[in-house]
Computed example of a mutant assay.
Amino acid sequence: MVLALSPGFVGVVGGGLAAIVLYALLGLVMMILGFYAIDLTTPGKLNQLVREGRPNAVVATGAGMISMAFIVVVAIYGASGRLADGLLATLVYGLVGIVVQAVAVRILEWVTGIDMTVLMESRELRPESRVVCAAHLALGLVVAVAIL
């Protein structure tokens, strides 16, 4: 019995592997930019607050990262297998999503009257962090679905 690969198999697998690597790198860049957008719009130095284990900063950061992942995943899905289109769409939608989410979450925090300085610096998990988390996740889903 001889095992033979169909013609074009190596090209298809190679293209798929390239897409995985490129999307992963772009997703990582979007996540880093999203982190810095959250950091810029949140009182205190977010990476320091997270390293110190401030639970509300950790929750807000985690929710922000998950919501950015929603946007990246839907942009990739919407590209329908066209790598160049998908990478460009992910970049554009990701950047717009970062800006929209950072502004919208801050507006929701203002509307709810959450004191972000007190919240981020607290050493105890506060109920308000659930509102911030929900705002990040909800807005990430809204932006993600808007891409479709």
Rank of each mutant, 00 (worst) to 15 (best):
V145Y: 01
A146V: 01
G11H: 09
E52Y: 06
V74K: 02
A24L: 06
L83F: 09
H136S: 00
Y77P: 04
R106Y: 10
M116N: 03
S80W: 08
G14M: 12
P127Q: 12
L5V: 06
R54H: 13
S80I: 04
V103A: 15
R106N: 14
L148F: 11
A144K: 02
F70S: 01
L3S: 10
Q48Y: 13
G78F: 04
L5F: 13
L87Q: 08
A89I: 03
M1Q: 08
A135S: 14
V96Y: 00
A60L: 06
A89Y: 07
L49A: 15
G16N: 06
R106D: 12
H136Y: 02
E124N: 06
L87C: 06
S129Y: 03
A24F: 05
L25E: 12
A60W: 03
L22D: 14
A18Q: 12
L141M: 11
G140K: 01
L33E: 15
L125D: 12
V59F: 06
W110L: 12
Q101R: 14
I20P: 10
A24K: 00
V74H: 00
R106V: 08
G11T: 11
I114T: 07
M1H: 11
E124M: 06
T42Y: 03
D115G: 01
A69N: 02
V131P: 05
A102I: 03
A79W: 00
E121R: 07
A69Q: 01
A19T: 02
A138F: 09
L83G: 11
V29R: 00
L139H: 05
N47I: 09
Y77L: 14
L125G: 13
F35G: 03
R126E: 12
L28S: 15
E109T: 05
T112V: 11
I98G: 11
Q101P: 04
L17W: 08
